[in-house]
Nucleic acid binder design. Structure first.
Lengths: 235, 235
DNA sequence: CCGTTCTGTTTACAATCCGTTTACAGCATT
DNA sequence: AATGCTGTAAACGGATTGTAAACAGAACGG
């Protein structure tokens, strides 16, 4: 069975798709093909797909949209494929939950290696049971289910509801700049007008709880004129 | 015997149920099927079920209610099958003692892997003998089978049904913040509107029974705007 | 049957929490 | 330097919580 995994190829260009399918079939995989989102959904609904090779450029719904949809219902392995080496798309795709990424033109053997590697990882993952929703950064640990923040020294740090929601929002999108409007969505806060300073105050309180030097923040950075970014402690 | 475990599939949709049954039968498992709570009870009464696959959406009694009933009399492995958008139900299910879960549409092989994994775990447990379901915290002892609470001084403290259910729920998930809605699930109280103060009153009564200083609780803490947490006496 | 008891629920109101507003000083960007 | 944006202390007030008391209806006993 190790070599009988089911791979779904989502690619609009027929030549590329068939070439890929042939190569992987010869390696002993079961293959399904889809040319767009509609066909992908149909194939995926079968329920036994182990890995999806997903082109990022598709007619109609694009690959990132489909990735998001997949991730809402499954943790199946996904490798994104794109035509140009677009750094932005790569980062966005990985942030949205893609497991790996290759750029065209790619080496078939490399793709095969990455696929096997990912399959091994996802199978192992699945055996681990229900995962805990925990985010780690700079020695801190945020448990989303327990709503609990633990410091690098192992101490519990109490967060109010607003502080927790804000930190969750930021931590879930590391590297992405979030506007105030954007962040307020996480606080059951309907409308927003430019004079609303709520986010600023909450961010300030958060910084005093998690930054070494709240005056010179390193985890939650402000982007002047735009909003805030969570750096994940990696600068 | 390793490959001759007995799996009970509880699922109202006949097509899904038969598909599942066929797949697992082919893998060498003994299968029973049930379309609702009544049939489940009948099959389960046989007494040799090793694993239950339990759909969360069922006509009549819903999956969570059945899960609770099962957990009152057995530690049998339970994997919940949830609709894709029900994050809340997923969390509640795990809190109520489900061992694992999958979301529809699910990958058959993933479900098989999780089932085998869980069987390995639960079978091991059983061989260890029928464990007493007792929870200890801060000198207290709560016996879940006898529904009895014993104080650090060794005295029996009487709990009403609601108080007991609530304390059980909290004690079974130390450190996890539970919403009121969430806690009411343990009281056969499916509906909830924001003006329902039942939980607050019961928590208050519980605190007066188990906290040193009910005004400054240390076991059951309130999380403003969210719900309550049981700390396990560890702060 | 009828009264009694027990207990979950509702009601009411005071106490507390914390998100929000306000105000102003300091900083970034032009 | 001018202007707009951000940081933050302080105060405010709507929402949330604690709790006593009343209520209701199920369980129980005679």
């Amino acid at each position: 069975m190790a070599q009988n995994n089911h791979i779904l190829i989502v690619e609009d260009d027929a030549t590329s798709r068939v070439t890929l399918a042939g190569y992987f079939a010869k390696e002993g995989f079961r293959i399904s093909e889809a040319a767009d989102g509609e066909e992908m959904r149909k194939a995926f609904a079968g329920g036994d797909v182990d890995l999806i090779l997903l082109d990022i450029r598709l007619p109609g719904e694009d690959g990132l949209t489909l990735l998001k949809e997949i991730r809402q219902k499954s943790r199946v392995g996904v490798i994104m494929v794109t035509g140009r080496s677009d750094e932005v798309d790569r980062v966005v795709a990985l942030e949205m939950g893609a497991d790996d990424y290759v750029t065209k033109p790619f080496n078939m053997r490399e793709l095969l290696a990455r696929s096997k590697n990912l399959l091994a990882r996802t199978v192992e993952f699945r055996l681990a049971g229900p995962e805990e929703r925990v985010r780690n950064f700079a020695g801190w640990q945020l448990n989303l289910d327990m709503r609990r923040l633990v410091s690098p020294e192992g101490k519990d740090v109490y967060l109010t509801r607003g502080e927790f929601e804000l930190l969750s929002a930021l931590v879930n999108q590391p590297g992405r700049v979030m506007t105030r409007d954007n962040l307020l969505d996480y606080l059951n806060h309907r409308e927003w007008d430019p004079s609303d300073r709520t986010v600023d105050v909450l961010i300030g309180r958060l910084r005093r709880k998690i930054e070494d030097d709240p005056k010179r923040p390193e985890l939650i950075m402000t982007v002047h004129g735009v909003g805030y970014v969570f750096t994940g402690g990696r600068g």
